[in-house]
Design a binder for these strands. Structure first.
Lengths: 194, 194
DNA sequence: ACGCCAATGTGGATGCTGTCAACATTAGGC
DNA sequence: GCCTAATGTTGACAGCATCCACATTGGCGT
């Protein structure tokens, strides 16, 4: 057993996630994390000022991972509508696969804007492209449309993660399909078109 | 000062909300609430087994209030599309006016379905009506459409409450208008219709 | 190669918390 | 009007966050 742990910071973050998975809430104690990492109760303070700062670090990781997923998704589609769709799917998939990070990202102290702007910008750009291609309605700004799309996928993600809506793969596929249809085509009955 | 407080339960719930407003998080302590209510540290246990149960009680209040808002909103509109719209507006307004309750309602232990079914059923019914009236597309079930609408307003609400999107009255009005347009008419460019 | 400093981890102390158990007061039904 | 259940109090205990002084060691400059 070495006096210096090697990478305590990482170990603490991992332990926090692990405890979250076990208990379904971020109610762990710093001392617990220390024990988990095989270290005394004060060692964590060399890396984080407190629990809040540790959670903030996890949140950062989450935003980075989300942005990364979004970028990866974009490489798989060319036509505008499809690009928006894969972005949305990536968002929902992220929420389902990393519910701890996702929850954390929502759970900021309130009123503090969070820097998920990265993912949002990708979405806005995709809609901008669609607009340039004449595929997307032009009486609403790309920004407004992006907000609507964001609200849609963010809402679905939240509802799934919070357990209000089942999150099994089959249903999620259907949901995203429905949402895609509604977002692009609307809910109104089409009289003659299509 | 009476020995018996009169309505300690209520006082504790109010104190919890108050402290939340002050600090932007539910990190109060039960002893604090007791002090706030002018009562000793153990009195709260006569009303709540612990902090979790107290929060659960607040959550219940939230769901009840939301359902009530939804019902009230429905009395103000007759045509199907408008009915869906006012429901959505009521949802968002609720989130903005009672952000503490709203946050709490999202913040359940994870995986535990919450009983906001009441509001959801109203929404589903409204879409059912729209469908019966031939106003709403019929290749998607009312349930699916309701999910989409719910995701939309829930997403917007979450984003506003979490500070990711500004929540001032003027902008919210514009957002809801945009969302209404997108939900009903879709994001695709309309070639000849309209 | 080596010494030294900053980073990292330790040990102990303090005040606050949740929770339990025994006791005190009072409201309200009989 | 009395008695019991509901409500509030007091005291005690273990665990936690946080602060401080101290111990160990990796690695940088020479």
């Amino acid at each position: 057993m070495t006096y210096h742990h090697g990478n305590l910071r990482r170990a603490l973050l991992d332990a926090a996630l692990e405890l979250f998975v076990e208990r379904g809430a971020f109610d762990f104690t710093l001392r617990e994390l220390a024990r988990e990492a095989g270290v005394t109760h004060n060692a964590p303070y060399r890396h984080f000022a407190g629990k809040a700062e540790l959670l903030a670090a996890l949140r950062e990781e989450g935003f980075a991972a989300l942005a990364e997923s979004a970028r990866a998704a974009l490489t798989t589609a060319d036509e505008p509508r499809k690009r928006v769709r894969v972005l949305g799917e990536a968002y929902v998939r992220f929420a389902i696969e990393k519910p701890h990070h996702f929850r954390l990202m929502l759970h900021n102290p309130l009123g503090e804007a969070t820097p998920n702007g990265a993912a949002f910008e990708l979405l806005r750009t995709a809609l901008e492209e669609g607009r340039a291609a004449g595929v997307v309605r032009d009486d609403l700004s790309a920004r407004e449309l992006a907000l609507a799309a964001w609200a849609l996928v963010h809402g679905l993600s939240s509802l799934i993660v919070s357990g209000n809506v089942p999150g099994d793969e089959a249903r999620v596929r259907r949901y995203t399909k429905t949402l895609d249809a509604v977002f692009f085509e609307g809910a109104l009955a089409r009289k003659r078109q299509r």
